[in-house]
Design a protein around this nucleic acid. Structure first.
Lengths: 80, 80
DNA sequence: GAGATATGTTGACTATAGTCCGCTGTCATT
DNA sequence: AATGACAGCGGACTATAGTCAACATATCTC
């Protein structure tokens, strides 16, 4: 799977687990809601800083977030 | 410590451990040498993609690279 | 002291991360 | 059917990641 897609899936997964809306996550992190949407749909590649900020507010260590992303990238899961 | 500084230190550390020059790392990763220099001096915040590419050619898992960066950020080490 | 290697630095450029605002569609609730 | 919460999506914008060429300095070796 493409890196952008993996990033989006992992972010969305943790956001829904935390039961918060894109709006709320945007509010928490200080990012724009449309940007959160772009990230989750795999249309943007975040900087490392963004990963740290998101991880913090999704209550997950940044390295673990990256780990999950990497596992998705290395998997054979496809999108269509 | 600032995130950018931590990124720079960790990259440089692993590059020197691997005993390769900035030039060589640039060649391996496909990035510009001046960009490697900027990163190591904490003047640029890489995207997550860049982290993955660098990690691959520095022979270290990306999550571990991020882990080391986080530890530096959370430490009390100062630069002056 | 000339040449080779490694890094810093900078200025101008291109690509893309991230903002802001607004409109659309969907779904659930009343 | 109206309202409200939520997400997709667009265009136009600003900030910054990453390129490229060039010059400077330091060190080391011959």
């Amino acid at each position: 799977m493409k890196l952008e897609q993996a990033v989006g899936l992992v972010i969305r997964k943790h956001r829904t687990v935390e039961k918060i809306s894109q709006f709320k996550l945007a509010e928490l992190t200080g990012y724009d809601r449309s940007f959160i949407s772009l990230l989750e749909r795999g249309r943007r590649m975040p900087t490392l800083k963004t990963i740290f900020v998101l991880a913090e507010h999704l209550d997950i260590p940044a390295p673990q977030l990256v780990e999950e992303i990497q596992q998705l990238v290395n998997s054979d899961i496809m999108e269509y």
